[in-house]
């Protein structure tokens, strides 16, 4: 009876009793979800265009943020530092294409996946060797002030992040749907050999998509790095993106956003209303559980492509 009350009565009574707090939790969850989506987008881009699950996406976020903050520490102006980091991420993408992906064209997906695990180690190590392992404060001038609207606490930084995510998604959606390069990316994802046979330059496409993923990683690195300082732990935020990907689908840009929002709200509600009987700190595993429940009904994720192979 007590368990019934704790799990099925008290949480709902609390929600009904304090609707303003519930609204604050939902808004907090949505804004957190946007931050998860920023990380998830990088995974989606590469998977969508090359069918590779890029294990090194978290390391790319770290590498980009470390490079940016390293340049800022050396007195480079913010805009120049941003541009230089963007260029470095493009060069990195070209290097990845030349050294890792090209020799593995037409190999099994698992082999490409294993290669990205190796890349993950290299990038984590290289970033730390080049820029050190200390926590580096990152301030690129994004406003970070709390304020209340109708008794609900908001933060200008979170709203800025949401706006950035919205712009990114719009740009990426247009890029994939409306441009020739976007269509070529989708063709490459479907079948490397077929894409090559119709004259799509596979190597160029891969370099482009890894470049875009690197720049998305830079944006994610700036947002997360501004919150916690730029440090090794940034590479671990990839773990927060996985349930988002499972839920939203590995090939959908809008899926990454919607998945992020659902995971963000879901885990916050679970942590605040249901964590006490479990001893607290349930949001990490709850996110995965939520994603798995969705998988039961939609194995391809909410917006993922349903693949039917006929034998």
């Amino acid at each position: 009876m007590d368990l019934w009350n704790v799990l099925f009565v008290a949480p709902f009574a609390d929600m009904i009793g304090s609707p303003r707090f519930l609204l604050e939790v939902i808004i907090g969850g949505l804004l957190t979800g946007v931050m998860y989506s920023l990380v998830a987008l990088g995974f989606v881009l590469i998977f969508k265009a090359s069918g590779v699950f890029n294990f090194a996406q978290g390391a790319m976020v770290l590498f980009a943020a470390l490079t940016l903050v390293g340049l800022l520490e050396h007195g480079v102006q913010v805009l120049f530092a941003l541009a230089a980091t963007g260029i470095i991420m493009v060069l990195l993408a070209i290097a990845i294409e030349r050294l890792i992906l090209s020799p593995l064209v037409n190999q099994e997906g698992i082999i490409l996946f294993m290669a990205t695990i190796g890349l993950d180690f290299v990038l984590r190590g290289a970033g730390q060797i080049a820029w050190g392992s200390n926590v580096k404060p990152l301030d690129v001038g994004i406003p970070d002030k709390p304020f209340e609207v109708a008794g609900i606490l908001l933060n200008s930084f979170d709203l800025f992040a949401a706006a950035i995510a919205a712009v990114l998604v719009t740009v990426l959606a247009v890029f994939f749907q409306k441009t020739g390069v976007g269509r070529a990316l989708r063709a490459v994802a479907d079948d490397h050999q077929a894409a090559l046979s119709v004259g799509i330059p596979l190597r160029t496409i891969w370099a482009i998509v890894w470049s875009v993923a690197g720049i998305v990683g830079l944006v994610a690195g700036i947002m997360w790095g501004a919150k916690s300082g730029v440090q090794f732990s940034l590479s671990l935020i990839a773990l927060k993106a996985l349930p988002v990907l499972i839920l939203g689908g590995f090939t959908s840009v809008p899926g990454a956003i919607i998945g992020g929002l659902i995971i963000g709200v879901g885990e916050k509600i679970a942590e605040i209303y249901w964590a006490p009987p479990f001893g607290g700190a349930i949001e990490n595993w709850f996110a995965y559980m939520l994603a798995l429940v969705f998988l039961l009904f939609r194995p391809q994720g909410l917006f993922g492509e349903r693949i039917i192979e006929r034998v």
């Binding site: 304090s18 907090g28 969850g29 732990s233 927060k240 916050k268 942590e271 607290g280 949001e283």
Partner: peptide, 21 residues
Amino acid sequence: TLLAVDHPGQEQKATWLQVRR
């Protein structure tokens, strides 16, 4: 009141919403 934060603790909004409440 005891509030646990899971490793590594990069995201703590739920914890601080509870603190605010």
